[in-house]
């Protein structure tokens, strides 16, 4: 309950609102609490109920400039916020982070590199480890089989756009996936593999490995595997991991210097 206690301390003083979760019928749903309803805030954070809080923060800050917010963040949420700030989408000055560490079971199934934020208010820190098992397994296959693997997964896509809608780093007002010249409208499955590769290359320098995309996919396409590989590619060529540094910008978002390209 440490996060709720901290929230109660700061509401109405350092912050105007706390973005956290409200219990409702057995679930915990996102809610912006103010001083009047802060006591209804949930004190527990089940692993199966992760939401793109950084997207909600971005929209709240855009519509209410200068608002002071606190938000409950896991490791991945903090990475997303750091990356969004570098892209000018979020203002960390007016944001208080209430850090939540993921428990051992979630850290194991999720498989991200750091299942805790930089400052933990609630939860025991558990060391994670980037799970590249599936990536390595696929790299061991011959190219023909690898292509069959990917196309057979992509072929069941129903174009729900859940992966894009839930991604904290997807905020473009005009999305390439809606562009009729790139992806035909009204086709299901969408053009393969360009539909999924468009997302994959866009995730270069952006994906913070939160896993919300794969959770939102009704088909269970192994998106995280693909985006993790893209993350490895970016790290190997540019020594860059999204969400780590608040200062170093993604090399794919700036032209850079001559050293970068020689």
């Amino acid at each position: 309950m440490a996060i709720k206690d901290r929230a109660r301390d700061i509401i109405g003083k350092e912050v105007d609102g706390v973005l956290a979760f409200r219990p409702e019928g057995g679930s915990h749903v996102p809610h912006l609490f103010n001083a009047d309803d802060i006591d209804q805030m949930a004190g527990e954070y089940p692993a199966g109920e992760r939401y793109p809080v950084s997207s909600i923060v971005r929209r709240l800050q855009a519509a209410r400039p200068g608002v002071r917010l606190a938000v409950v963040v896991r490791g991945c949420d903090e990475r997303a916020l750091i990356e969004l700030e570098k892209q000018g989408q979020v203002d960390m000055e007016h944001l208080v982070l209430l850090g939540l560490a993921c428990d051992g079971e979630l850290a194991g199934t999720c498989g991200c590199a750091q299942p805790y934020p930089s400052e933990v208010v609630q939860g025991e820190k558990v060391e994670g480890g980037l799970d590249l098992g599936m990536v390595e397994k696929l790299e061991g296959l011959p190219p023909g089989e690898r292509l069959d693997y990917w196309l057979s997964r992509f072929a069941a896509c129903v174009k729900c756009f859940g992966c894009r809608n839930v991604c904290p780093l997807c905020y473009c007002k005009e999305c390439a996936l809606d562009e009729p010249g790139l992806v035909d409208h009204g086709e299901q499955p969408p053009l393969l593999p360009v539909f999924h590769l468009i997302r994959a290359v866009d995730m270069a320098g952006r994906c913070v490995d939160c896993g919300l995309c794969e959770e939102a996919c009704p088909i269970g396409i192994p998106l995280r595997t693909l985006y993790r590989k893209v993350g490895e590619v970016v790290e190997s060529h540019f020594e860059y991991r999204p969400g780590r540094s608040p200062d170093k910008k993604s090399p794919l978002s700036v032209l850079g210097t001559e050293e970068d390209v020689t």
Binding site: L138, E139, L141, P143, G144, E145, R146, L147, D148, Y149, W150, P193, L197, A200, V201, A204, L226, K229, V230, V233, V234, H237, F238, P251, L252, L255, G256, T257, E258, D260, V261
Partner: peptide, 24 residues
Amino acid sequence: IKGNYMTYKRFQVIRDVLEFIGIG
């Protein structure tokens, strides 16, 4: 001036993604 810096960076990402997908 620096347009081709971006070309080079993007090329590396696209090339490795194509290899991973199995297009080559």
